[in-house]
């Protein structure tokens, strides 16, 4: 299949004063058309930075290396003006928290219609068309009272409804790639189920590719075709969802899955090292239960497996 997005050896570092702090190191993955790739990992492992790097939303003190290719065109360091045409129509984003990402003083329908930048939709016939299409999206996302909700303010809606408004902002322009950042964070289980179902439907009906950033393993399982496990700015394992979850190869993935309450909440010793003070060899080495002498000296290379790779010395094909 054709690759929609191809990320190769992506490096991101931030300039803190005079020091450079490397956050992402050699992150490589690709997303095919109509495919959902989930990125899972702990808070602060660099998941969101990956999303921001693709969307050109990093702060000014960031430095991006490597290559990000969208449809075969390199978009890594292109100027903001050149990247603008991609925003919305090609690549769109669903930001993290509905409570802070929506303008509290603007009607939600207006906020969604704002995403459509084409001028002709601002007046007359086209404006009506746009409203209809937005209401159509609302109904697809199973929002209640779809006709009135267009004129509601964010504070009048529940958290799950706001989350769906955010999603409709992402899909109203019919993007080919959707970058979703932590859609199930800090919402309770009833809502979480709804949100997950929305993404499952999106995947089935709209067939748009997604980069699904989350720390919720269950949500990733429901939505994603493939899963990438991130630890400390590196992807340590990437592969088919079932393979990764049922037959994890990297010790970190194993630990992560074993730490789930239904798997007996086994504790992984130690903590993720700080980005300012990284170990020389494998970044997981200090916490690893299966480490060898090589682990602390050299960085493990990618070992390709079916539709993905693993970065670990212990892994043999």
């Amino acid at each position: 299949m054709e690759n929609l997005l191809e990320v190769k050896n992506l490096n991101v570092s931030f300039l803190m004063g005079k020091r450079k702090i490397h956050i992402l190191k050699d992150v490589s993955f690709n997303i095919e058309k109509n495919e959902v790739l989930a990125v899972i990992g702990e808070t602060g492992c660099g998941k969101s930075v990956t999303g921001s790097a693709i969307l050109h939303l990093l702060p000014e003190n960031a430095e991006v290396g490597g290559s990000i290719k969208y449809n075969g065109i390199d978009i890594t360091n292109i100027h903001e003006n050149e990247f603008r045409p991609y925003r919305g129509t090609e690549i769109a984003a669903v930001p993290q928290s509905p409570s802070t990402s929506l303008d509290p003083l603007m009607k939600v329908g207006k906020q969604v219609s704002e995403c459509v930048t084409d001028k002709k939709y601002k007046y007359g016939e086209h404006k009506k068309q746009l409203k209809e299409s937005i209401i159509n999206i609302f109904s697809k996302l199973k929002l209640p009272r779809i006709n009135e909700i267009y004129d509601d303010y964010p504070c009048e809606l529940s958290g799950g409804m706001n989350q769906r408004i955010l999603i409709s902002m992402g899909i109203v322009t019919k993007p080919k790639l959707l970058i979703v950042d932590e859609p199930t964070k800090a919402i309770d289980w009833a809502l979480r189920k709804e949100v997950i179902e929305v993404f499952q439907d999106l995947k089935k009906e709209r067939r748009c590719a997604m980069l699904f950033i989350t720390h919720d393993i269950a949500a990733a399982k429901c939505v994603a075709d493939r899963i990438a496990v991130m630890y400390c700015g590196q992807i340590v394992e990437i592969g088919y969802t079932n393979d990764v979850l049922n037959n994890p190869k990297h010790p970190y993935t194993k630990g992560l899955i074993a730490s789930m309450p239904s798997r007996g909440f086994h504790v992984m010793e130690g903590y993720m090292p700080s980005f300012a003070d990284l170990p020389i060899g494998c970044r997981f080495e200090p916490r690893c239960s299966e480490k060898t002498d090589n682990c602390s000296k050299y960085e493990p290379q990618m070992i390709n497996i079916k539709n993905g790779y693993v970065k670990c010395f212990r892994f043999k094909l």
Binding site: E42, H215, G255, L256, S259, P261, V267
Partner: peptide, 14 residues
Amino acid sequence: TSMLDVSVQAHILK
């Protein structure tokens, strides 16, 4: 544990 990651949550539950 509702504000914490899975791996950290495990430690707290333990």
